[in-house]
């Protein structure tokens, strides 16, 4: 599907731009939302499970960072890997950008809620 960007914005005609699909933008937005979601999920689960908390702490490699090391490193890995995978799948495709954006937004909001202390600390054992 061609986007005909020059028809919507005539000032682009002189720039002679090739068409580019929406897929790569959807992949970038999704991976950002997914990375935040994983961060929030791990933050909550770290309070629920002592064994997970201790495992996340092992990612600090004696630097004194604590479980934050595992939460943030794994979230960054999830962000990067999901971007590579989804970008490869959508590289040349046009997708419904609204749907991908709203889905990514929901993931990001859920993740952000998971990092809010009154929420994740409510999962901590008394």
């Amino acid at each position: 599907m061609a986007h005909h960007d020059e028809d919507r914005a005539h000032e682009l005609v002189e720039l002679d731009l090739e068409d580019r699909p929406d897929g790569p933008a959807a992949a970038a937005a999704f991976s950002a939302g997914f990375g935040i979601f994983v961060l929030g999920l791990l933050t909550m689960l770290s309070e629920v499970s002592v064994s997970l908390h201790d495992w996340l702490e092992r990612w600090e490699f004696d630097q004194g960072v604590g479980p934050l090391a595992g939460k943030t490193t794994l979230a960054a890995i999830a962000w990067a890997v999901s971007w590579i995978v989804v970008a490869a799948l959508l590289r040349k495709r046009d997708v419904n950008l609204k749907v991908w954006f709203l889905f990514s937004l929901v993931l990001g909001i859920l993740g952000a809620i998971g990092t809010f202390p009154p929420i994740f600390l409510s999962f901590a054992p008394e």
């Binding site: 986007h3 960007d5 020059e6 028809d7 919507r8 914005a9 000032e11 682009l12 720039l15 731009l17 580019r20 790569p24 933008a25 970038a28 937005a29 991976s31 950002a32 990375g35 935040i36 961060l39 929030g40 933050t43 934050l68 939460k71 943030t72 979230a75 960054a76 962000w79 971007w83 990001g108 993740g111 952000a112 990092t115 809010f116």
Partner: peptide, 27 residues
């Protein structure tokens, strides 16, 4: 915790701005 959302989002924005460039005007 929440500050780590910033680089994920900012990198996605930087990629989209560079990849689509002036096409952003029309979309």
């Amino acid at each position: 915790h929440v500050a780590w959302a910033s680089p994920f989002l900012a990198t996605a924005v930087a990629f989209i701005v560079v990849y689509y460039g002036p096409r952003l005007v029309a979309r």
